[in-house]
Design a protein around this nucleic acid. Structure first.
Lengths: 332, 332
DNA sequence: CTGAAAGCGCTAACAC
DNA sequence: GTGTTAGCGCTTTCAG
């Protein structure tokens, strides 16, 4: 016997499959009596509707795709977790797609997800690919986290990166840093750019010069950060503070400093960004800017689901900015 | 215009949709000439087949589900990453499902994934729920990572937990520990049990007694570990080594010790388990047992896909054991 | 309140 | 080599 279908239930109940469908979806036009009978049968036979068939008919799959650079990075996994949790409460499932920052893979996924009929897409950060032009005409709702596509058909959710960058730098100034290095993504991704802008404006506010030799545009990895700081030390460029635009970069900087026997926070102070758990268990513990990952995930998903079944957009199509907080620990 | 379908392509090409289907799936029985024409049209119209329809017809969705306790835990996210990477190369997508160790949620997901027609399931670790009885008759292939269901219809992939436990304990003995605490999951999950067994056997081998007051069965969290060790200290129970059966537990232990001004590795040594990145950036850096997360994910997926389209099982239905390694760092 | 019938887009017999 | 047809399991007019 293949799996039991709506027809089997209908037959048992002595009604048509249309009626069964109606009670399942609560579409009215059935008597209380049939309802009970059908529901009982469904229970008894442990029937559950074939969603694939349903999707084909309704063009709704009850699933979304999440495109993420690397799920093994805690920031992304936390956001993804929040997305998934919210989706679950609404009966949606989520396809998780790692791109490893590979645009080719990104494109392939885009196509595949569309073919699989996802109802929406959440894009977390990552590259510079112009997504919209790769999504086919028949537009599917998209929300972007930390990435600003050209189009205006897309909702953006992001942390207040500018303020974060400002606060981080300000904290360094507060503890008397005069020569503050910034470690940032070498690509022009929006989040990095805003954090950088915050850094510059904070420096300006406190009358500190912006020294290009202290602006380190690098690969986003522990090793690159370590190497960059090591290089700075080797070439005798003086600095007394580091604003690492992600916590992993802060970890790399810390490592370089320890290796070079430079005291933190004694001689050099550090502020990170993200507030992932490593900052709490490294030593010294890293002062950082908290991103509210749970909220980012939840709000994004909420908006996406609204777009999916609320049609265009409920209210304003404004970007959504999630506040950040300075978490003061031991590196400042 | 709704999305373009196989019929449109067929019409344009002046052939039937069956033929188009054949060339798409390379099922033979078409001329080279039609092939070219069809392919060109597909290109031109950017046609891509509707996988939902295909699934309905073929009972294959080209997607699998991964059920995981908590994706924000690095061990799980690394395994999941490996799964997803392998799947991608085979054209499969993966639904990631967090259960938060909640059996109710697990059951719900099981049902939902089945309804969505996943071709297979990978279960990572977690609870004690008897999955098989919750998967409907029409059995779908399953592989379990670190969890041993009753049935024999399922493939198990797991690290060599026994050896890991043994090696960890042996390392502690090597550095002269005599009173070795073990921090373990209070639930009878298979991985914890094997690690515990390794611990006991190593103790036995070196003629050390097994002291029940040093066997701490706790919740799997940094805080519980910290509290458990703090309590030990408070009650003056002597110990000079800790085998933490996960790295996060090791972090908790380390924290408790630091808080209590007990030197690590001077007075107490620690060995963790998993080898997640925190062990490399905590201080002191944590000696641990490496689990090959990439391999665990890859092998599991490989086996699953074999089950999916190889029918029952290619070769032996044996459990698959992935070797572990001791990574010596600074806590021993 | 209920049923019949069409059809979502695709594949798989089967016939030619 | 190619077309015709039926049907996967469901929802949704439309009639009654």
């Amino acid at each position: 016997m293949g799996k039991i279908s709506i027809k089997d239930i209908a037959k048992q109940a002595g009604v048509s499959s249309a009626t069964v469908s109606r009670v399942i979806n609560n579409n009215g036009r059935f008597s209380e009596k049939t309802r009970e009978k059908v529901l009982a049968l469904i229970e008894e036979f442990e029937y559950s509707p074939n969603i694939v068939a349903k999707s084909l008919r309704t063009k709704r799959s009850q699933s979304i795709g999440v495109i993420v650079p690397d799920i093994s990075n805690e920031f992304f996994s936390q956001v993804t977790l929040a997305i998934e949790n919210y989706c679950f409460t609404k009966g949606y499932s989520v396809f998780v797609c790692n791109t490893n920052e590979d645009e080719e893979k990104e494109k392939l996924y885009l196509k595949d997800l569309e073919a699989k009929g996802v109802d929406g897409l959440i894009y977390i950060s990552g590259g510079t690919l112009d997504i919209l032009s790769h999504i086919s005409k028949r537009k599917i709702p998209i929300v972007c986290i930390d990435r600003k596509p050209k189009s205006k058909d897309v909702i953006i959710v992001e942390s207040d990166n500018y303020s974060g960058g400002f606060m981080a730098t300000e904290e360094l100034v507060r503890v008397n840093c005069k020569k503050i290095v910034i470690l940032k993504d070498y690509r022009n991704v929006t989040s990095a750019m805003y954090r950088f802008k915050g850094y510059r404006d904070a420096l300006k506010k406190y009358g500190l010069p912006i020294d290009p030799t202290l602006v380190l545009s690098i690969n986003i990895s522990v090793n690159s950060a370590r190497d960059a700081i090591l290089e700075l030390i080797r070439t005798n460029i003086a600095f007394d503070g580091v604003f690492a635009t992600t916590d992993w970069l802060a970890v790399g900087a810390l490592d370089a400093l320890r290796q070079s026997k430079i005291k933190v926070p004694g001689e050099v102070k550090i502020v990170g960004f993200d507030n992932i758990s490593i900052t709490e268990y490294s030593c010294p513990k890293i002062t950082t800017i908290n991103q509210d990952k749970e909220k980012i995930g939840r709000i994004s998903t909420k908006k996406l689901l609204e777009m999916i079944d609320g049609g265009p957009l409920s209210d304003s199509n404004e970007d959504i900015i999630i506040p950040v907080q300075l978490i003061r620990r031991e590196t400042t």
